[in-house]
Design a protein around this nucleic acid. Sequence first.
DNA 1: AGGATGATCGTCT
DNA 2: GACGATCATCCTC
Length: 199
Amino acid sequence: MLLRPLEPNSLAVESRALAQALIGCVLVSDAPEGRSAGRIVETEAYLPGDPACHAFIGKTGRNATLFGVPHRAYVYLIYGTSYCFNLASEADGVGAGVLVRALEPLHGVELMESRRGTRVLRDLCRGPGRLTQALGIGRGHDGANLFEGGRLWLAAPDRPPGRIRSSRRIGLTQAAARRLRYYEAGNPFVSGPRKLSPP
DNA sequence: AGGATGATCGTCT
DNA sequence: GACGATCATCCTC
């Protein structure tokens, strides 16, 4: 399978534009065990000054990469069990990011199955904690540059993305009404509700 | 030093 | 649909 590295500086910096631009792009993990990759089908934007954004409380040890240069990986542990993968967004110094919530498996399905402990294709990368486990992403990837051919990088879309829809973000207690979740319409690898939520 | 919290997942009913 | 696991992180003594 041909994977063409995404051109640096080709992605939007503004959080909502970035969240939409990432749909269809391919996230690639090159680990000692082999390559695994998936097509991004669902994202969420976390804006500057957004109470739901980890950066809202100010810069701390955990969230520092959200305040750094855009498009670096921000990875953190949630509920003591799962890692979430984000890209920092907005200008250097501004705390914001985009969470990647689901991938469509593209490459290295056997490796993903072994990491995930399931052979159900639809369950490999559907959900933020699942996709990080499938690709072997952990806290060690925090701060990674995704454009210099390292262990984790972004490739250009392998095909044009379908129509993008939006909805409320999932699992939030803060700012839950805002429609900052984006997903490819009709894609079975999208997590959570695939219908439009009420305005 | 101790307690509360959470952008989730898997299991059970 | 509901619930418990599990722990790094942050806040308050």
